[in-house]
Measured scan of single mutants.
Amino acid sequence: DLSGKLIIKAQLGEDIRRIPIHNEDITYDELVLMMQRVFRGKLLSNDEVTIKYKDEDGDLITIFDSSDLSFAIQCSRILKLTLFVNG
Score class of each variant (00 low, 15 high):
residue 1 D to C: 05
residue 1 D to P: 02
residue 1 D to E: 06
residue 1 D to G: 06
residue 1 D to L: 05
residue 1 D to S: 05
residue 2 L to N: 14
residue 2 L to I: 14
residue 2 L to Q: 09
residue 2 L to S: 12
residue 2 L to M: 14
residue 3 S to A: 07
residue 3 S to G: 06
residue 3 S to I: 13
residue 4 G to W: 06
residue 4 G to P: 07
residue 4 G to Q: 13
residue 4 G to A: 12
residue 4 G to C: 13
residue 4 G to M: 09
residue 4 G to H: 10
residue 5 K to I: 05
residue 5 K to H: 03
residue 6 L to D: 01
residue 6 L to R: 10
residue 6 L to P: 09
residue 6 L to N: 05
residue 7 I to A: 04
residue 7 I to S: 05
residue 7 I to H: 06
residue 7 I to E: 09
residue 7 I to W: 09
residue 7 I to G: 03
residue 7 I to K: 04
residue 8 I to S: 01
residue 8 I to R: 00
residue 8 I to G: 01
residue 8 I to F: 03
residue 8 I to V: 11
residue 8 I to A: 03
residue 9 K to I: 15
residue 9 K to H: 15
residue 9 K to G: 02
residue 9 K to W: 12
residue 9 K to V: 15
residue 9 K to C: 15
residue 10 A to L: 03
residue 10 A to T: 03
residue 10 A to E: 03
residue 10 A to N: 01
residue 10 A to Q: 02
residue 11 Q to I: 09
residue 11 Q to S: 06
residue 11 Q to D: 01
residue 11 Q to N: 07
residue 11 Q to Y: 03
residue 11 Q to P: 00
residue 11 Q to K: 07
residue 12 L to Y: 06
residue 12 L to A: 00
residue 12 L to C: 04
residue 12 L to Q: 02
residue 12 L to G: 01
residue 13 G to V: 01
residue 13 G to Q: 07
residue 13 G to R: 04
residue 13 G to C: 04
residue 14 E to P: 08
residue 14 E to S: 09
residue 14 E to Q: 09
residue 14 E to N: 06
residue 14 E to F: 10
residue 15 D to V: 14
residue 15 D to T: 14
residue 15 D to I: 14
residue 15 D to Q: 15
residue 15 D to E: 15
residue 16 I to L: 12
residue 16 I to Q: 10
residue 16 I to E: 15
residue 17 R to A: 13
residue 17 R to C: 11
residue 17 R to P: 00
residue 18 R to C: 15
residue 18 R to Q: 15
residue 18 R to L: 14
residue 18 R to A: 14
residue 18 R to V: 13
residue 18 R to Y: 15
residue 19 I to N: 00
residue 19 I to D: 00
residue 19 I to L: 09
residue 19 I to C: 06
residue 19 I to W: 04
residue 19 I to R: 01
residue 19 I to Q: 01
residue 20 P to Q: 13
residue 20 P to K: 11
residue 20 P to L: 09
residue 20 P to E: 14
residue 21 I to N: 03
residue 21 I to A: 05
residue 21 I to Q: 02
residue 22 H to L: 10
residue 22 H to Y: 10
residue 22 H to N: 11
residue 22 H to W: 09
residue 22 H to S: 12
residue 23 N to Y: 05
residue 23 N to F: 03
residue 23 N to E: 06
residue 23 N to I: 05
residue 23 N to V: 09
residue 23 N to R: 09
residue 23 N to M: 05
residue 23 N to P: 08
residue 24 E to T: 09
residue 24 E to S: 11
residue 24 E to I: 09
residue 24 E to H: 07
residue 25 D to R: 11
residue 25 D to Q: 08
residue 26 I to F: 07
residue 26 I to T: 04
residue 26 I to P: 04
residue 26 I to Q: 01
residue 26 I to H: 01
residue 26 I to A: 02
residue 26 I to G: 00
residue 27 T to A: 05
residue 27 T to M: 03
residue 27 T to D: 09
residue 27 T to H: 05
residue 27 T to V: 02
residue 27 T to P: 02
residue 28 Y to C: 02
residue 28 Y to E: 00
residue 28 Y to N: 00
residue 28 Y to Q: 00
residue 29 D to G: 13
residue 29 D to V: 08
residue 29 D to H: 07
residue 30 E to R: 07
residue 30 E to Q: 11
residue 30 E to H: 05
residue 30 E to L: 04
residue 30 E to G: 09
residue 31 L to T: 02
residue 31 L to G: 00
residue 31 L to N: 01
residue 31 L to S: 00
residue 31 L to Q: 00
residue 31 L to E: 03
residue 32 V to R: 06
residue 32 V to H: 09
residue 32 V to F: 07
residue 32 V to I: 10
residue 33 L to E: 14
residue 33 L to H: 08
residue 33 L to W: 06
residue 34 M to V: 12
residue 34 M to K: 08
residue 34 M to D: 03
residue 34 M to I: 11
residue 34 M to W: 11
residue 34 M to T: 10
residue 35 M to F: 06
residue 35 M to I: 14
residue 35 M to R: 01
residue 35 M to K: 01
residue 35 M to L: 10
residue 35 M to Y: 01
residue 36 Q to K: 12
residue 36 Q to F: 11
residue 36 Q to A: 09
residue 36 Q to I: 08
residue 36 Q to N: 08
residue 36 Q to M: 07
residue 36 Q to V: 10
residue 36 Q to S: 08
residue 36 Q to D: 04
residue 37 R to E: 15
residue 37 R to T: 12
residue 37 R to N: 10
residue 37 R to H: 12
residue 37 R to W: 04
residue 38 V to T: 11
residue 38 V to R: 04
residue 38 V to E: 14
residue 38 V to N: 13
residue 38 V to K: 03
residue 39 F to K: 01
residue 39 F to G: 00
residue 39 F to R: 01
residue 39 F to D: 03
residue 39 F to E: 01
residue 40 R to L: 08
residue 40 R to H: 13
residue 40 R to C: 11
residue 40 R to K: 12
residue 40 R to D: 13
residue 41 G to Y: 07
residue 41 G to V: 04
residue 41 G to W: 06
residue 41 G to S: 08
residue 41 G to E: 12
residue 42 K to R: 08
residue 42 K to Q: 08
residue 43 L to F: 07
residue 43 L to G: 03
residue 43 L to A: 02
residue 43 L to Y: 04
residue 43 L to R: 03
residue 43 L to H: 04
residue 44 L to S: 13
residue 44 L to I: 04
residue 45 S to G: 09
residue 45 S to A: 11
residue 45 S to V: 10
residue 45 S to L: 10
residue 46 N to C: 06
residue 46 N to H: 09
residue 46 N to I: 09
residue 46 N to Q: 09
residue 47 D to G: 14
residue 50 T to S: 13
residue 50 T to D: 15
residue 50 T to K: 08
residue 50 T to N: 03
residue 51 I to K: 01
residue 51 I to T: 00
residue 52 K to L: 05
residue 52 K to S: 12
residue 52 K to H: 09
residue 53 Y to S: 03
residue 53 Y to N: 00
residue 53 Y to F: 11
residue 53 Y to T: 04
residue 54 K to N: 14
residue 54 K to F: 09
residue 54 K to G: 05
residue 54 K to S: 12
residue 55 D to V: 07
residue 55 D to Q: 14
residue 55 D to I: 05
residue 56 E to Y: 12
residue 56 E to C: 09
residue 56 E to F: 05
residue 56 E to D: 12
residue 57 D to C: 14
residue 57 D to R: 15
residue 57 D to G: 15
residue 57 D to P: 03
residue 58 G to V: 01
residue 58 G to P: 02
residue 58 G to C: 02
residue 58 G to S: 04
residue 58 G to K: 04
residue 58 G to L: 02
residue 59 D to G: 14
residue 59 D to N: 15
residue 59 D to M: 15
residue 59 D to A: 15
residue 60 L to F: 14
residue 60 L to N: 08
residue 60 L to K: 04
residue 61 I to S: 11
residue 61 I to Q: 14
residue 61 I to K: 15
residue 61 I to E: 04
residue 62 T to M: 02
residue 62 T to Y: 02
residue 62 T to G: 13
residue 62 T to P: 14
residue 63 I to P: 01
residue 63 I to Y: 00
residue 63 I to M: 10
residue 63 I to S: 01
residue 64 F to Y: 13
residue 64 F to L: 09
residue 64 F to H: 14
residue 64 F to E: 14
residue 65 D to T: 12
residue 65 D to G: 13
residue 65 D to W: 00
residue 65 D to K: 07
residue 65 D to L: 00
residue 65 D to F: 02
residue 65 D to N: 12
residue 66 S to C: 06
residue 66 S to L: 01
residue 66 S to F: 00
residue 66 S to D: 04
residue 67 S to W: 09
residue 67 S to H: 13
residue 67 S to P: 05
residue 67 S to Y: 09
residue 68 D to P: 01
residue 68 D to C: 06
residue 68 D to Q: 12
residue 68 D to N: 03
residue 68 D to E: 09
residue 69 L to Y: 01
residue 69 L to K: 00
residue 69 L to A: 02
residue 69 L to C: 00
residue 69 L to W: 03
residue 70 S to P: 01
residue 70 S to L: 11
residue 70 S to A: 09
residue 71 F to N: 14
residue 71 F to S: 14
residue 71 F to T: 15
residue 71 F to Q: 10
residue 71 F to R: 15
residue 71 F to C: 10
residue 72 A to H: 04
residue 72 A to K: 01
residue 72 A to L: 09
residue 72 A to Q: 05
residue 73 I to H: 01
residue 73 I to D: 02
residue 73 I to W: 08
residue 73 I to R: 05
residue 73 I to Q: 03
residue 73 I to L: 10
residue 74 Q to T: 06
residue 74 Q to D: 06
residue 74 Q to R: 12
residue 74 Q to V: 03
residue 75 C to Y: 06
residue 75 C to F: 04
residue 75 C to R: 15
residue 75 C to G: 09
residue 75 C to V: 11
residue 75 C to S: 14
residue 75 C to I: 12
residue 75 C to T: 13
residue 76 S to L: 04
residue 76 S to I: 04
residue 76 S to V: 06
residue 76 S to T: 06
residue 77 R to S: 08
residue 77 R to D: 14
residue 77 R to Y: 05
residue 77 R to H: 07
residue 77 R to A: 09
residue 78 I to N: 14
residue 78 I to K: 07
residue 78 I to P: 13
residue 78 I to D: 15
residue 78 I to H: 13
residue 78 I to W: 07
residue 78 I to F: 14
residue 78 I to Y: 10
residue 79 L to G: 07
residue 79 L to R: 10
residue 79 L to Y: 05
residue 79 L to W: 03
residue 79 L to S: 10
residue 79 L to A: 06
residue 80 K to P: 15
residue 80 K to R: 11
residue 80 K to D: 15
residue 80 K to S: 15
residue 80 K to V: 15
residue 81 L to P: 03
residue 81 L to A: 02
residue 81 L to D: 00
residue 81 L to Y: 02
residue 81 L to E: 03
residue 82 T to H: 09
residue 82 T to E: 15
residue 82 T to P: 02
residue 82 T to Q: 15
residue 82 T to K: 14
residue 82 T to C: 12
residue 83 L to R: 02
residue 83 L to C: 04
residue 83 L to N: 00
residue 83 L to D: 00
residue 83 L to V: 11
residue 83 L to H: 01
residue 84 F to Q: 12
residue 85 V to D: 04
residue 85 V to M: 11
residue 85 V to C: 12
residue 85 V to T: 10
residue 86 N to S: 11
residue 86 N to Y: 04
residue 86 N to E: 06
residue 86 N to D: 14
residue 86 N to K: 10
residue 86 N to F: 03
residue 86 N to C: 08
residue 86 N to Q: 13
residue 87 G to P: 11
residue 87 G to M: 10
residue 87 G to F: 13
